[in-house]
């Protein structure tokens, strides 16, 4: 493999379904493992992933998700999301992928900067005390753009 030219990855996480949260987390962690800087901006429903009360209760989306290969009506039955989530988490554990809370600790310890979106925090009537202790701060989108302060920075919306 040739050496990557990417120096920094900025992720915007706007959703709280577990498959989106893990996608962002795994890519951010993977960046750090390659010596690439990484930061995550949690906005809209993505805020649930750093909300102390919500983060261990995220679900996989069973409705409106064609890759679940089940009729949408079945996906909407009570308990279906919880069941699908439980099965997925079991498979993740086998691959040594940690639950959301532990994953956030790993990201923070690995030097991934974790930011909450100010607009979304205001909209959901949240404050810093509702969010994880490892949070690096609450930023406007303008502030977050200014984090793209080096060459070969890439921004990705999840």
């Amino acid at each position: 493999m040739a050496e990557t030219k990417v120096k920094k990855m900025l992720f915007i996480l706007s959703k709280a379904s577990i498959e989106n949260v893990y996608a962002a987390f795994i890519m951010a962690n993977g960046a750090r493992m390659e010596g690439i800087e990484a930061e995550i901006f949690f906005t809209f429903f993505g805020l649930e992933a750093i909300n102390k009360k919500k983060l261990e209760h995220l679900h996989v989306a069973t409705v409106g998700n064609p890759a679940m290969h089940m009729p949408t009506m079945l996906g909407g039955l009570p308990g279906m999301e919880a069941l699908a989530t439980k099965m997925m988490m079991k498979e993740m554990e086998k691959l040594d992928i940690p639950p959301v809370g532990e994953f956030l600790e790993i990201l923070s310890d690995s030097g991934v900067k974790l930011w909450a979106c100010k607009l979304a925090v205001d909209m959901f009537h949240l404050s810093e005390k509702d969010l994880i202790d490892d949070l690096d701060g609450i930023l406007t989108i303008g502030d977050f753009y200014s984090r793209a302060n080096s060459d070969e920075t890439h921004m990705l919306f999840v």
């Binding site: 493992m33 390659e34 010596g35 040594d96 532990e102 600790e105 790993i106 310890d109 690995s110 030097g111």
Partner: peptide
Amino acid sequence: IRGIKKSGVINIKEFYDLFPGGPLK
């Protein structure tokens, strides 16, 4: 990296400090 966290030998922050540029690599 999760194994490193549980290793009892080193924590993740130190691991990144000791081996800059992708610690496991």
